[in-house]
């Protein structure tokens, strides 16, 4: 039975009395044990507090192992960024373009060729008029990127496009782009399909 505090018993006639029994030891101990268990559990199976460890994975290492380590080429991340900024609006995130308007880049027979020679020209000066891509006809215009993009940007985005969405192709270098930029600096207008076909692919 609890010991009752005198004060409340006397002064507090109508209000309930308060016992002064200390908090039970079992509760304090149990709380200590459970908090300890919480800390241990969070450290051991909290996925190292890593933002990428979800669900079935236990550690960041497991997440990594679920994905064979990928060594990304230098151009991948910057190239994807340029693509996401300048090209995605027309050629779409999945490279599929828009039927009848913008030709696809994914598996395009203009992109999947031996060298980036023609593609560099397309990006530098743009392209207009009738165009056959994968045996489909287009007739639209793409603007020039000569003034907006640096040699490095163009090399990166072209390398990226040539290796994304199932495309396979060699990377372009900034030096290559620079050479073509200088060679075509007086061109002034967009390319046409006929002109480009004169240019060797490599």
């Amino acid at each position: 039975m609890s010991e009752l505090s005198n004060k409340s018993a006397v002064e507090n006639d109508s209000e309930p009395k308060v016992g002064l029994t200390p908090a039970p030891l079992w509760a304090v101990t149990l709380l200590g044990i459970l908090v300890y268990a919480l800390i241990v559990r969070s450290i051991n199976s909290g996925g190292d507090f890593d933002p990428n460890v979800y669900g079935r994975f236990e550690t960041p290492k497991e997440v990594q192992d679920g994905h064979p380590a990928v060594v990304l080429p230098d151009w991948f991340v910057p190239g994807r960024k340029v693509y996401g900024t300048y090209c995605v609006g027309c050629h779409q995130g999945n490279g599929a373009g828009a039927p009848g308007q913008f030709p696809p880049l994914a598996k395009s027979d203009w992109v999947n060729v031996e060298g980036p020679n023609r593609m560099v020209r397309i990006v530098l000066n743009g392209l207009q008029g009738p165009l056959k891509v994968n045996a489909v006809d287009y007739n639209n215009a793409m603007l020039a990127w000569r003034d907006q993009l640096t040699d490095q940007d163009i090399a990166n985005v072209i390398s990226y496009v040539r290796n994304e969405w199932g495309n396979k192709g060699s990377a372009a270098t900034a030096a290559e782009v620079k050479a073509i930029r200088d060679a075509t600096k007086d061109k002034g207008e967009q390319w046409t399909e006929g002109q480009l076909l004169q240019i060797p692919v490599k």
Binding site: A27, L34, V53
Partner: peptide, 30 residues
């Protein structure tokens, strides 16, 4: 759909809630 650590902590806390609740019930029952 949240990182594992958040879930782990949350689950454990649900167990710890037992202590104050048991304490309240013990106290009031007495």
């Amino acid at each position: 759909p949240l990182p594992r650590w958040i879930i782990t902590i949350s689950e454990s806390v649900n167990l710890i809630f037992l202590v104050p609740i048991a304490l309240v019930v013990h106290n009031l029952w007495n």
